[in-house]
Computed example of a mutant assay.
Amino acid sequence: MLTGCKIAFLGGDARQIEVIQHCSDLDASIILYGYENLKNEFSGAIKKSITPDCFQDMDAIILPVTGMREDGKIDSCFTNKELKLTEEHFKKANKNVVVFTGIANEKLTGFCTENQRCLIELMNLDEVAILNSIPTAEGAILMAIQNTDFTLHGSNAVVLGLGRVGITLARTLQGVGANVFLGARKPEDLARAREMSLQGFHLDELPLIAEKADIIFNTVPATILDASVLVKIQPHALIIDLASKPGGTDFRYADKRGIKAMLAPGLPGIVAPKTAGKIIANSIARLLVEHKSKLGGEI
């Protein structure tokens, strides 16, 4: 339970609704910033406007999965007003506050580090990222089905990167009968591909593999699908880039060659916000209880 815990929520999307509901069910006191247009009513939740000292008695600050922009602005689909954080907010925050975000840029990390505030990046936690890979994989496959005129079964599907998303996506594609080629650099990743009965290849071989690809799913957050690779890809092929912005594809050159390439970060929040929100909510609740225990029962 989170009885006595004061939590500030800032902006976000439909995933945040699930997190708010879960924390409310656990008896937390909730303050909502940037939720003026939200029609849902949560027991014990209060909507307020952000002020310089609004976090001074908060036990947790929960930011959207996308975190905070470099200019301090917070994205929210629940308000038309600007939602912005400055270093003063962190300086005046409760010294024991825990700041949760999906991902953190240098600005947010700097604010928390300089003011000695605990920052947790949820998307770096295996318990979140592994489960989050499920709606990501399903969303990617949905996009592939919607944007091709052939079945995934029997197609040559290339997955680049063997991280949490890459493994789940490759396994799912394999399950629907695609011929899966898995590109990686590390010997242990190539060994894993072999163990999964996939056709593993070193990324240095990508130009050769690209020639026979029907669909390419990229999870590598670096420009890996550059001109030297794109020039080898067949016109009918589809690229779905799942890496964080700006992705790992030269989209300008892909467009010039008439290749359909789509950047698709944040799929869980689009295709399965309820599930994605519950994944985040469960981890936040567990981490807050642990934090409370470390502080001797006082959160």
Rank of each mutant, 00 (worst) to 15 (best):
L2W: 03
I17W: 00
I17S: 00
V19Q: 06
Q21L: 15
S24C: 14
L26P: 03
D27I: 08
Y35C: 13
E36K: 13
K39G: 07
F42A: 00
G44N: 13
I46E: 14
I46W: 00
K47A: 13
S49R: 15
T51P: 00
T51S: 10
P52V: 15
P52F: 12
P52W: 12
C54L: 08
C54D: 14
F55C: 01
A60R: 07
I62Q: 04
I62T: 04
E70C: 09
S76T: 15
F78T: 11
F78R: 13
N80L: 11
E87V: 02
E87R: 03
E88Y: 07
F90M: 12
F90R: 06
K92F: 08
N94G: 10
N94V: 11
V98C: 04
V99A: 08
V99E: 08
I103C: 12
N105S: 07
L108F: 09
L108T: 09
L108Y: 08
T109G: 15
F111C: 06
T113R: 15
I120C: 00
N124I: 02
D126F: 05
D126Y: 04
E127S: 12
E127L: 05
V128H: 10
A129S: 15
A137T: 15
I141H: 00
L142G: 02
M143L: 15
A144T: 11
Q146W: 03
N147T: 06
D149M: 06
T151G: 03
L152H: 06
L152Q: 04
H153K: 11
G154L: 02
A157Y: 01
A157G: 07
V159I: 14
G161R: 01
R164A: 13
R171E: 14
T172A: 14
L173M: 04
L173I: 00
G175H: 10
G175E: 03
V176Y: 02
G177P: 10
N179D: 15
R185H: 07
E188H: 15
D189G: 04
D189Y: 09
L190V: 14
L190C: 13
L190W: 14
L198E: 08
L198K: 11
L198C: 14
F201M: 06
F201L: 09
L206A: 06
P207Q: 07
L208W: 03
E211G: 01
E211H: 01
D214I: 13
F217W: 05
T219D: 09
T219F: 11
V220C: 09
I224Y: 03
D226H: 12
A227C: 09
A227T: 12
S228M: 05
P235S: 15
H236K: 15
I239W: 01
I240Q: 12
D241I: 10
A243D: 11
P246V: 14
D250F: 04
Y253R: 04
K256T: 12
R257V: 09
G258A: 06
I259H: 10
M262W: 02
L263R: 10
G266A: 13
G266E: 08
L267E: 06
L267M: 13
A272Y: 00
K278M: 03
I280Y: 06
A281W: 05
A281Q: 07
S283P: 03
I284S: 13
A285F: 11
L288Y: 03
E290W: 06
S293P: 00
K294G: 08
G296A: 13
E298N: 09
E298D: 05
